Computed example of a mutant assay.
Amino acid sequence: MKDILAAVTGEPLKPATVDEFVWSAEAGAVVSFHGIVRDHDGGRSVLSLDYRAHPQAETFLRQCCEEIAEATGLQVAAQHRVGSLAIGDLALIAAVAAPHRPEAFAACANLVEIIKRRVPIWKRQHYAAGATEWVGL
């Protein structure tokens, strides 16, 4: 089993940390995904987000990374932020290194999809109109 970087943190995410973790001499491609807090959702203006995680969220995140690493034989990593985030903040970083770009793109896309489906992290959106709404509960 390859080493895995999987973290749920309240600290700002640093893309270079994740990219450097997955890179190796045989990697001809590093593909990373940056999930960024945007200023809208569903036609409504968003001011900020609060992310909250289940106490075992990091375990679930690690399992997602391990699953993709096992299935592909590639080096993978992911970090998810929790706490209060502003527009433009990084909420999720996922990265995969592979000898060639098609494998790296496919594995990274699969990793992000299973993270979104399986990791128990919820967000509360704060809208410009004053309302708030939990998403993913």
Rank of each mutant, 00 (worst) to 15 (best):
Arg117Gln: 12
Gly10Lys: 05
Glu58Cys: 07
Val112Asn: 03
Ala91Asp: 15
Val8Cys: 04
Ala7Lys: 05
Ala57Pro: 01
Glu11Trp: 11
Asp50Trp: 13
Leu5Met: 11
Glu70Ile: 00
Ala71Pro: 06
Lys123Ser: 14
Ala95Val: 10
Asp19Gln: 15
Val31Arg: 04
Ile93Lys: 06
Arg101Tyr: 13
Leu47Asp: 14
Ala53Asp: 00
Arg101Trp: 14
Phe33Trp: 04
Ala95Met: 09
Gly42Phe: 13
Lys123Trp: 02
Cys65Ala: 06
Glu11Tyr: 10
Phe33Leu: 01
Ala104Ser: 10
Cys108Lys: 00
Gly42Glu: 10
Gly88Ser: 04
Val18Ile: 13
Leu61Asn: 01
Ala95Arg: 03
Gly28His: 05
Gly28Met: 12
Thr9Cys: 04
Leu111Asp: 01
Trp23Phe: 06
Leu137Asp: 14
Pro99Val: 10
Glu11Cys: 09
Asp41Glu: 15
Ala53Gly: 01
Ile68Tyr: 01
Ala7Met: 06
Glu20Leu: 10
Cys64Val: 00
Gly73Cys: 05
Thr9Phe: 03
Thr17Ser: 15
Gly28Asp: 13
Val82His: 05
Asn110Ser: 15
Val112Tyr: 00
Ala86Gly: 15
Val82Tyr: 02
Ala106Cys: 02
Glu70Arg: 06
Pro15Cys: 03
Val37Cys: 09
Phe105His: 07
Glu66Cys: 02
Ala131Tyr: 15
Ser32Ala: 08
Arg118Ser: 15
Glu11Pro: 00
Ala7Thr: 12
Val76Asp: 03
Arg38Pro: 06
Ala95Thr: 13
Val30Leu: 12
Thr132His: 07
Leu13Ala: 07
Ala25His: 12
Gln125Asp: 11
Arg101Asp: 09
Gly83Met: 06
Cys65Glu: 01
Cys64His: 02
Leu5Ala: 04
Cys108Trp: 00
Val30Ile: 14
Val46His: 09
Cys64Tyr: 00
Gly73His: 13
Ala91Met: 11
Val8Trp: 01
Leu5Val: 03
Gln79Thr: 08
Gly83Ser: 06
Val18Glu: 14
